[in-house]
Design a protein around this nucleic acid. Sequence first.
DNA 1: GCGCATCCTAACATCAGTGTTCAGTTCCGA
DNA 2: TCGGAACTGAACACTGATGTTAGGATGCGC
Lengths: 182, 182
Amino acid sequence: MAVTTDAILDTATRVLAASPAATLADVARAAGISRTTLFTRFATREELLLALAADALDRIDTAISDAGVDDASRDPLLALADLTETVIPLGARLGYLLRERSLDDDEGLKERWARIDRGIVDAIRRAQAAERVRADLPALWVADAWFWLVVAVWEAVEAGRIAPVDGSRLVLTTLLDGTGTR
Amino acid sequence: MAVTTDAILDTATRVLAASPAATLADVARAAGISRTTLFTRFATREELLLALAADALDRIDTAISDAGVDDASRDPLLALADLTETVIPLGARLGYLLRERSLDDDEGLKERWARIDRGIVDAIRRAQAAERVRADLPALWVADAWFWLVVAVWEAVEAGRIAPVDGSRLVLTTLLDGTGTR
DNA sequence: GCGCATCCTAACATCAGTGTTCAGTTCCGA
DNA sequence: TCGGAACTGAACACTGATGTTAGGATGCGC
């Protein structure tokens, strides 16, 4: 097993995020293995896609628990800041999840995604209760806004429009402070 | 021509935005015409996709000039507010453009997109010059943030998480005022 | 009714991607 | 050096989508 399954997932994510219509032959080539070998790891395309999604969700889960987003005793905004930092490098994986509509009906994935969402929304609610986040905005929306700003940063970094190092700062100040002058 | 080409574009956008892998047979069925007829309007799939993209860009162009975004004498933030209002209903078309990576290398589309982007960035710069938008943030980023917040609203409306009527207000207050308490 | 345009269904060729099989190789440890 | 495990290229069948073609129905103005 010269090329680990992990490395394949990694490459596959990059290739499929860049162009979701990419062939398994493309993926195999990019991963430096033969198409035949790829099929020994993942029996079908579907299986590979699901593994990719599961991997991405695993990493987000880890990032969430590392950042202590679900920890009610932790400052929710600090947790969100940590999460932002960790999640931005997962951009390609998120991009893949966003674009791969063929997985939209998978109940398991939907459920996992909903749980992640709930965790973030709860953190926002706690921040609202602590009067750190405006209470006149739906927490659901604030969570959405955070998520899509992360996507925005990732796209901008990808396109070379902003420096990677500025990413999480831009997301947080834009989300919390806004871009207008006071 | 019982079914206008415009109506076909409309339906095709909806179908393809919902699932980019949709077949031309799917599109034809959804539009209420036969596959054969669809081929008389658009000789190839590629041609249909390009027409879709061109249509979306046309509408954005119109929205931009209607809102007076390029008009240096107009209040840039009011223009942006108008633009937001008009652009949100174009969500499905934007979603299609975002997800359809097969068009990414088309030079014509890239150029048109870049011009649109430039218009918005310029408006942001004018707002910065008038001290209405923070000068410590790259205008490029503020433009990106605006765009992705629009996408966020569209997705949230689509998913029934927020009311359509709240859309543009949420985008603007989130972008300019931020979601944090002062 | 005639001619023209438009749409339809049905069939067809073509092609690309998926998934399978197999014989041959390389490599690594016993 | 032997044996097994892993990988390979090459071939194959199968499927589904694209694009083409032909023949027939429908409708509309003249």
